[in-house]
């Protein structure tokens, strides 16, 4: 359940830097390479937020992001939707960029 640690870290960061007014929405980007399950993140947040006035009426909105790949063999550019997915040419030898976001994009206040 590393999502609990992540939600705590997220709430600490927001409280430290933007803790003045109550928040309505926290918008996050979560990449599929980040090792984080969006629904688990939401569940943890819905529990942990109850203990804090700042977050009590807040929801998280998660944008899932996917990495881009560039195949070393056929030179094709493609988007990866699952780790360990081969290129259309059958190889796994490709350069990957992005898709590892675990980022607080913005906040919307009440």
């Amino acid at each position: 359940m590393h999502e609990i640690s992540l939600v705590s870290a997220m709430m600490d960061l927001i409280k430290r830097d933007y803790g003045a007014k109550p928040i309505k929405v926290i918008r996050l980007r979560v990449g599929i390479l980040s090792c984080v399950e969006p629904s688990a993140l939401e569940s943890c947040f819905s529990v942990l937020k109850q203990q804090d006035k700042l977050f009590k009426s807040c929801n998280v909105s998660i944008l899932v992001t996917y990495p881009n790949a560039h195949c070393s063999h056929c030179k094709r550019h493609f988007s990866i939707t699952q780790i360990g997915q081969p290129c259309r040419c059958g190889t796994y030898d490709y350069a990957v960029s992005g898709g590892d976001d675990l980022t607080i994009q913005d906040l919307e206040f009440i």
């Binding site: 998660i62 944008l63 913005d106 906040l107 919307e108």
Partner: peptide, 30 residues
């Protein structure tokens, strides 16, 4: 955790609100 109170919102279209209520953050959770 004893209580799961999930409100799944991921992958929904992200709404844009008025600029005064919006705070750009762009910070890594970790």
């Amino acid at each position: 955790i004893n209580e799961i109170n999930s409100a799944p919102t991921h992958n929904e279209k992200q709404e844009i609100s008025s600029p005064s209520k919006l705070q750009h953050v762009e910070a890594q959770i970790l």
